[in-house]
């Protein structure tokens, strides 16, 4: 058990912090599930945090004047560097504290990026930071493609999804690879805390982020972030899709604490994946064969997780 967790009782719906470290008035799209998740992340962390933000939607919607939304120290860096810059921030604070140049109070350090910044271009630097064991949390807001540059595929784009660089047509059915499992890569680094979260389960999300901040050493939280613009889904249905992703087992919620898998929400009667796929333009070209494949693979992946939870 992690000693830092002992005093943390979890957030309650009634006592969610009213403070908004990420202010409203930014310019995210209507129904953006990503900014909603980020707002919850920031509520969980409060204001004693330094945010290292990779290039991506959340940086673009929150930084141009007069739509600046950050009320905490914030550094925007290039696309792949969030984990490396956060490592520098953490090391510098450690050194400056040791030398007595800054007060010894604890400040959380968060690196945040999208699925492209995390799973594609920035993966190597995340691996380095996890290996070195910096005391920081990395939050990936996964909307499953490069949304701010024109919806290009990423390693986290799900099988079959249409993007501008995986267009379906006569010879293609969209994305040909299965979604890259970034949480598993994080787990493989033997860091103390890894979790998946969804804005549809906001208390669970906030608790996981808080735990990731409390734990000593690196922590990783992978957050599913619906994107009406890139997915071709209705803005008002974002939370519904986030919920369906969990209920169909497409995006399972779990924690891995010191290597032990714990299911946050066991889905014993899963809905068929079609319920999740329909209503999203990115999947509308898929035929029965593809949907059948997705269903089977989702079941297999979920079984694997259950077995990991049993074994560990």
């Amino acid at each position: 058990m992690i000693p830092e967790f002992e005093k943390f009782k979890g957030f309650k719906a009634k006592s969610i912090p009213k403070d908004e470290p990420l202010a409203s008035g930014h310019r995210a799209c209507q129904g953006c599930g990503e900014v909603l998740a980020l707002r919850m992340v920031m509520k969980a962390l409060g204001r004693d945090v330094i945010v290292c933000s990779a290039t991506g939607c959340m940086e673009i919607i929150s930084s141009p004047y007069p739509h600046t939304a950050w009320r905490v120290p914030w550094i925007h860096i290039a696309f792949e560097n969030a984990a490396a810059v956060a490592s520098g921030v953490e090391s510098a604070r450690k050194v400056l504290k040791r030398k007595g140049k800054i007060p010894k109070r604890h400040v959380d350090i968060m690196a945040v990026g999208g699925d492209g910044a995390t799973g594609d271009i920035g993966l190597q630097w995340i691996s380095g930071a996890f290996e070195r064991g910096h005391d920081f949390l990395y939050v990936c807001l996964d909307n499953e493609a490069y949304m701010n540059t024109g919806v290009q595929r990423s390693g986290c784009t799900p099988y079959g999804a249409m993007t501008t660089t995986s267009p379906p047509g006569k010879k293609s059915f969209g994305q040909v690879t299965w979604k890259k499992n970034i949480p598993a890569i994080a787990v493989a680094h033997n860091i103390p805390y890894v979790a998946t979260a969804s804005p549809a389960y906001f208390l669970d999300l906030m608790n996981k982020v808080k735990k990731a901040a409390l734990v000593k050493g690196p922590a990783y939280v992978h957050i599913y972030s619906p994107c009406p613009t890139g997915w071709g889904s209705a803005g008002e249905r974002s939370i519904e899709f986030a919920k369906l992703a969990v209920e169909t087992r497409v995006f399972p919620l779990y924690e891995v604490i010191e290597g032990r898998y714990i299911m946050s929400r066991k889905i014993t009667k899963p809905k068929p994946v079609t319920e999740y796929l329909k209503g999203q333009k990115r999947f509308r070209h898929l035929d029965e064969g593809h949907i059948d494949y997705i269903q089977k693979r989702v079941d297999v992946e979920y079984e694997k997780l259950l077995r990991l939870a049993e074994l560990t």
Partner: peptide
């Protein structure tokens, strides 16, 4: 992808 080069990729991909 990187603006303003991305449209070469889009054009050739499609």
């Amino acid at each position: 992808p990187m603006t303003p080069a991305s449209s070469i990729l889009h054009y050739l991909a499609s």
